[in-house]
Amino acid sequence: MKESIGDRSIAVAIVVILIAIGLLTFFPLYYVFVVSFTDPTEYLQKQGFILFPLKWSLASYRYLLSTSTFLNATSVSAFLAIVGTPLSLIITSGLAYSLSRTRFWGRRVLLILILITMLFNPGFIPPYLLVRDLGLINNIWSLIIPVLTSGWYVILMRSFFDSIPAELEEAAMIDGCNDIGIFFRIMLPLSLPALAAFGLFYAVAYWNTFFSAVLYINNPQQWPLQLLLQNMLIDSSTSGDAGMTSDVQIPSQTLKMAAVVIATVPILCVYPFLQKHFAKGVMLGSVKG
């Protein structure tokens, strides 16, 4: 079909806008990358005015990777994302699916009860005591179990299940499937796009685990990456031992940015895979529609 001139110019405008947005988003990331590879002395001399380093330096990376903690923390964060995400998806989708069925008796009450939990925040002491009483302090599961699902995701996912027609379910029921069978054999495959999206949400949340680790993990060997990063990026000399400055290693700007890059690399590695999976999910979703 022929396109009108108006449509043409709109198409061009869209491309231009998208490129502009892409560049704006990309530049800070590029800059971080460049700074991380700059020689620390060159950085100090040029006061950060670097678009391309004179000499690529691996000094910051060499230093970071020489500490075992960094790799340790990365594997903790990876464990959280890899183990936590499927668990979260099963629990969230199970509850969300049940709540999306109108025959589920008591669903309105449950929904309201769940909504309330999204709004009342009891602070951090009561959850801390609970985790302690469950014997999870210093246990890596304390970073997964208390955040397995959230009201926000249950409610959002429920609206996805809402869109799946009830006839499918009825047909399966006639075929002798029970609810669990229907859920795993029909509903989950049908909602792959939603699962992919929520899987990403959860994976990111697990990857960025921070404050609960502050509270529940005493052993620095079990720190997730974000806690380590915070220690490097945020000034510790303000809150720490003000006078006792002997050999406190203050990470330079280049070292900080190298840490940022390393923390982002694992994401970049799984990123294409996730995106492909996600795209597939979206396609399935459109077939379904």
Partner: peptide, 21 residues
């Protein structure tokens, strides 16, 4: 030894004091 980073020391101390243990 429970090593705590100075960034989070105050939060952690309050949690430990509150727990009573």
């Amino acid at each position: 030894i429970n090593w705590i980073s100075p960034n989070n020391f105050q939060d952690k101390l309050n949690a430990i004091l509150a727990s009573g243990q």
